[in-house]
Amino acid sequence: MSMLTKVVIPVAGLGTRVLPASKAIPKEMLTVVDKPVIQHVVEEAVKAGFKEIILVTRNSKSAIEDHFDTHYELESELARKGKDKILAAVKDILPSDVSITSVRQGRPLGLGHAVLCAAPVVGQDDFAVMLPDMLIHNPHTDSSTDFKAMVDDYHQSGAAQIMVEAVPFEHVERYGVVDCAGKPLEAGQSQTIVGMVEKPPQSEAPSNQAIVGRYILPARVMELLKETQPGAGGEIQLTDALDQLIKEATIHAYSMTGKTYDCGNKLGYLQANLIFGLDHPETGTEFKAFLDGIV
């Protein structure tokens, strides 16, 4: 077990599920209320204690890097006009002790390949992976609660971690599902994973705990990914490497207490704006009144 400071966020996807919005704008830059989706995810990582953000990107995604960079002209103009609150929101996107590094994924060869592209930066350290489409909402609590709980379990147990969410059994065929040998897994709890099944029929699903895009992994995964052959869709799948990892190391499933919203599709994106808009201190009260008036 090593120091856990690095998180890999693959942002090289084309965003086909939200076209035409993502034709010229990276899907990760679509806003949920007043922040791009990628900022919500990076803030979640920072609140969980991560200091090194590694973006796996491609050409035409420079807007993501620009968003986290200094915008001298904008900041100077806001300061000149005395708009201190807005200035703080622009300047303080990243704490001074957090860095962002970008690496390129030349071709779209799967999530496993995207993670492997970060290997030179990750080195021999254990690391996290966060999918930028998935936003986590924890009502009335810090939005980092679930991810921080995974980090805590990693430090206590030394086990790799996969975040899961309970879904209706009739929907399990839409997800990758973990097998915890039939042991009950309540929200906020962890169990050892003995296997994973991708999109199983309801009658064959080992559980209703679906993988939701947050991982804490040992450095060994990079070596396994180098040996992983193309799988589903002709792509290098992270799940295939994790199947190998199960044979030699312990992996825990952490069942989240909050709820995920998949901003990579139109419905999930609308739902996220609704939920986060109701929680936002500037919009919540009036937005609720508006919704009450139309429901």
Rank of each mutant, 00 (worst) to 15 (best):
I216N: 00
Y254G: 02
V18P: 03
P132S: 10
I162A: 07
E44F: 00
E286C: 12
E173H: 12
F127E: 07
L55C: 08
D152Q: 12
E235W: 00
T16N: 14
T228G: 04
G158C: 06
P184E: 02
A272G: 08
P10Q: 11
T70R: 15
N265Y: 05
A289Y: 00
S62D: 14
K91H: 06
Q191W: 03
I193W: 10
H137S: 13
G195M: 06
H155Y: 15
A128N: 03
D262Y: 13
P10H: 03
E170S: 14
V197I: 11
A12P: 00
T228S: 01
E77Q: 14
V129C: 03
S207D: 01
L94T: 05
K266F: 02
A128S: 10
F287G: 07
L245H: 09
D97Y: 07
A63V: 02
L4C: 02
S207G: 09
T141I: 05
A205Q: 08
M163I: 11
A63G: 04
P201S: 06
V221G: 01
M196P: 02
H252V: 04
P230D: 09
E227C: 01
H171F: 06
E286T: 15
C263D: 05
S143Q: 15
A272P: 01
M150S: 01
L55N: 10
M163V: 10
M150R: 06
A21E: 15
F169L: 12
P95V: 01
G15I: 01
M163Y: 04
P201K: 12
H280W: 06
I54L: 13
H71N: 14
S157D: 04
C180R: 13
K27T: 04
N273L: 11
F287R: 08
K199S: 13
L245K: 08
N59S: 14
Q237E: 15
S99A: 09
G176R: 06
N138D: 06
S96K: 14
V56Q: 11
T5V: 08
E44K: 10
V32Q: 01
I38L: 15
A149M: 04
E170L: 05
Q202L: 02
S60K: 15
I236K: 08
L87I: 00
T192A: 08
D133T: 14
A114N: 08
A118I: 04
Q191T: 03
I275H: 03
M1P: 04
D243H: 11
H40K: 02
Q124V: 06
F127W: 06
Y72F: 09
G293S: 12
V122T: 06
E223V: 03
V42H: 03
G231S: 14
M3I: 13
G112F: 10
E65K: 13
V37W: 00
T145C: 13
Q244G: 12
G284N: 00
L185A: 07
H113M: 07
E204P: 01
A119D: 14
Q244K: 14
E170P: 05
T257A: 04
F68I: 07
K47E: 15
A63L: 14
E248C: 09
D69V: 00
P201A: 06
K247I: 11
E204V: 04
H280F: 03
S99T: 15
G13S: 13
N273T: 12
V42Y: 04
G264M: 12
P120K: 02
K6I: 09
E248H: 09
A48H: 11
G182A: 09
E44T: 15
E186A: 11
S2R: 12
Q271D: 14
